[in-house]
């Protein structure tokens, strides 16, 4: 079942787009933010009583807070000082932040994979005759709740309207009194917290190691291109598509072939439909 991984990819891709829409810049440290979330969960586990088997989901608020702070730091150090330079500069600064996070974790925790406690219990559940792992269900459910929450915030709240105004027309947003810097930093915090949450969700079922960031940012990046640059709905859908594709193709051919085909498809999509499979929702400024 590709959906637990797909659901986690979707969280990662959504966080990527949140930052993208606020800044028009690609945050290359986003994969490392997932890793940071996973390792935050691993570290927080030390503070849980070991024998009580407390569900890992209880760590979610802690992980979200820590990674949101990381997001603020990324925004303040790697974006704000160079916001008026060409977008290429932000690529480089966020690559640098990614290096710092990944190698910092590597030096602190070691290169080996770690695991966080199970999110809620272990084992499988019978669902209409099909046995499904409890972990997978919780991953999917948590991702759905977070994505739904984001949708409500963006559509129904004043803050959400400000987010959307900034992504559609930053000059106009500034002109009507929205504090652009504040919204930008909030986007970094929220986007990175989404990545962090994905890290927690992944950490038990799929482990987490310091080198996991690069493949994750690549998947998110591809998801956003396939789903349409800047589209939140497209990013979530693109992430699911990638997960289904990876699992489906690898199961009938082989893993390296599935991966290779994914890259070929990216190149073909960029060639034929640079606006993404599902179209671009707005004019591209990056």
């Amino acid at each position: 079942m590709p959906f637990p991984l797909g659901a986690a990819y979707a969280l990662v891709a959504l966080g990527f787009v949140l930052v993208l829409n606020a800044t028009t810049a690609v945050n290359f440290a986003h994969g490392e933010s997932v890793v940071a979330g996973g390792f935050t969960a691993v570290a927080l586990t030390f503070f849980l009583p070991p024998d009580l088997r407390i569900p890992g989901l209880i760590l979610l608020p802690g992980v979200v807070v820590v990674t949101a702070v990381l997001g603020l730091a990324i925004g303040a150090l790697a974006y704000l000082p160079i916001r008026n330079r060409p977008p290429v500069s932000v690529f480089v600064t966020t690559i640098a932040v990614g290096m710092i996070v990944a190698n910092g974790l590597n030096a602190t925790f070691g290169a080996a994979p770690r695991t966080a406690p199970p999110l809620i219990g272990v084992g499988t559940i019978d669902l209409i005759g099909v046995s499904i792992s409890r972990q997978s269900l919780v991953i999917i459910a948590t991702a759905c709740v977070l994505i739904g929450g984001l949708a409500i915030v963006l559509q129904r709240t004043q803050l959400g309207r400000q987010f959307r105004a900034c992504s559609q027309d930053p000059e106009m947003a500034r002109a009507i009194g929205i504090r652009l810097t504040r919204i930008t930093l909030l986007s970094f915090a929220l986007g990175t917290a989404f990545a962090g949450a994905a890290g927690l969700l992944l950490a038990h079922q799929f482990f987490i190691s310091p080198a996991d960031g690069a493949p994750l940012i690549l998947k998110a990046y591809i998801a956003v291109v396939i789903g349409g640059w800047g589209s939140l709905r497209g990013a979530a859908l693109g992430a699911l598509l990638i997960a289904v594709f990876e699992v489906g193709v690898a199961a009938i051919s082989s893993q390296p072939l599935a991966e290779g085909l994914l890259y070929v498809i990216v190149l073909v999509v960029l060639f034929l439909r640079p606006q993404g499979l599902l179209g671009e929702p707005q004019q591209v400024r990056a």
């Binding site: 590709p2 992944l202 799929f206 080198a211 690069a214 990876e246 699992v247 489906g248 193709v249």
Partner: peptide, 10 residues
């Protein structure tokens, strides 16, 4: 590949 996260397909 060492980066493979989902062992389900194999």
């Amino acid at each position: 590949d060492i980066s493979v996260k989902d062992m389900l397909p194999v």
